[in-house]
Design a protein around this nucleic acid. Sequence first.
DNA 1: ACGAAGCCCTGCAAGC
DNA 2: TGCTTGCAGGGCTTCG
Length: 271
Amino acid sequence: MPELPEVETTVRALRPRLEGRRIARLVVRDRRLRWPVPASLAARLSGVPVLRVVRRAKYILVETGEGTLIIHLGMSGSLRILPAEQAPGKHDHVDIVTDHGDIIRYCDPRRFGCLLWQPGEAARHALLRDLGPEPWDPGCTGDSLFERSRGRRSPVKTFLMDSGIIVGVGNIYANEALFDAGIRPGRAAGRVTREEYGRLLAAVRAVLEAAIRAGGTTLRDFVSGDARPGYFQVDLKVYGRGGLPCPGCGGLLKEVRISNRSTVYCPSCQR
DNA sequence: ACGAAGCCCTGCAAGC
DNA sequence: TGCTTGCAGGGCTTCG
């Protein structure tokens, strides 16, 4: 399940294969994704030069001279770079073939992802328009989170995972960051202090950066094979460890559901 | 404006 | 062994 670090790692792997090159053709085998792959996409991209590949939230933006290809990996999606033709598997939806012969294969078994087209400025697309800042945006600070959270009664974990507030914090890293910051996930967002939001944002950045670094070590294996960038390279302190000892105090970690998402925390270390 | 719940989908694990 | 059931997850969408 791609979280932001996995998307970032994918973008870094794609850059040398796409930037400055042309899309020779698009092979669409299965249009069924969260929204159907537009019927006009293949014709639209044929022969088009790629200027830049960038990440915004968990979206991969392939910027061309004509517009932007917007890709989301959903829960189970992946993009793999194949050095040569390989027989497509059951859930291999789309191939992007470059003028250098690289095949970039989009696969998404659960079909929560998407491939869409936006003419002109990608930021104007409805999916991107209302997104909050990136965690590293200078305008994203402990103070700004504190201000936005006033009066909110929903859990701070839900607030942290709200892409209108801050992007890129999925369930796994929300759990980890709240543990690192010593904040209980179930507390009302509006009751968390200014200082705590400062600690929380620092923890978010640190845990995402560590995971991106870990993803970087898998980059060299990204081409061909089954190697995929992954967050599972990082040691997770609480996620998936409900009932096991807390790495801080040794007490048992508690597992609850918040907004229907699995939530793990230490009742002693997190207040 | 906010918040909660529903929904999309497949693979896997656990229970019978 | 083969069924059924539950769960996982991001994030849009709907409803209150």
